[in-house]
Design a protein around this nucleic acid. Structure first.
Lengths: 151, 151
DNA sequence: TTGACGCCCACGAAATCCCATGGTAGCCCA
DNA sequence: TGGGCTACCATGGGATTTCGTGGGCGTCAA
């Protein structure tokens, strides 16, 4: 499976459109059908937008369906998960429009950074993205970024 | 599995391309499919670029997908690992282009050294590479390092 | 109407493809 | 053993395509 790697910065045009970075597009194309589609969600831990290939998002939410349908917890969870999620389709040039609520949640204005995270990626305001990666690098190092075989 | 051995110095041309040393190329070819592909990452301990065959990188990141539940540590680790990683494909002549961020992290300008490290290799600025190997040799000797199981 | 949105085309810069070349190291054969 | 030949490899550069970006036009809904 191809994954989302690296970070890319792109510009938002006057109509509010952003190009999805080409490598991400190809990853998305192979993933599903002809049209490029995404599920966007506000991150609940960062000021950024989470972007999922629809198939992965579905797999992520599958466990929910098995929960007790009428428990209050499950109800809250599903509401939080689905109600804030936005399906998005790219135009022929591979551009998407960020829903207003998500754009303001991430604080983006005229440029955004796409940050690859393997199976998914995130969309950030550029400065916030830089701060985020710097902190992640630092914490990963001091935590001894040790993975099996990474010697 | 064939390994990456030895050190090779190559020049970066005006377009930012570097030839992957031929022996490394053959090692990469046997590893996976037809096209020569790599995953590049900034080393978190040295001023150099780590280069992994995609298959090895994937195996390296596999454990992450399993603990990818929403712990903060896992989040940092994932970000540090994926957001700084760049997939690279060689052209028909076996050359790659180093992403700007990685080139500056390693301080490379017009020549680079490929340093074999078994399953992976590193890309260095030539002087830094020389210093690195000298120091490694010295420290290995003074500590009397021996290979586990080489008795 | 007016604004939002989808579809289409246009264009410059940058990345990629493709062919050429010179040097070198290895090989073969005298 | 030496000399020439060949194949491979690192490198260069022109041609072509891709990609990000801008903008025009029609459609549909408010």
């Amino acid at each position: 499976m191809s994954q989302f790697l690296g970070t890319h910065q792109n510009r938002i045009d006057a109509k509010g459109r952003v190009s999805i970075p080409a490598p991400f597009r190809t990853a998305l194309r192979s993933d599903s059908a002809a049209a490029i589609a995404l599920v966007l969600r506000p991150s609940h831990t960062h000021a950024c937008i989470e972007a999922w290939p629809p198939a992965i998002f579905e797999r992520l939410t599958n466990p929910l369906e098995k929960l007790d349908l009428f428990s209050e917890d499950a109800d809250d969870l599903t509401t939080a998960l689905y109600a804030d999620a936005w399906p998005v389709e790219a135009d022929k040039e591979g551009r998407i429009v960020l829903p207003d609520s998500l754009a303001s949640h991430a604080g983006v204005t005229d440029s955004v950074v796409f940050m690859g995270l393997g199976r998914r990626f995130q969309i950030w305001e550029p400065q916030a993205a830089a701060a985020r990666t710097a902190r992640a690098r630092e914490r990963a190092r001091e935590r001894g970024l040790s993975l099996p075989g990474a010697a």
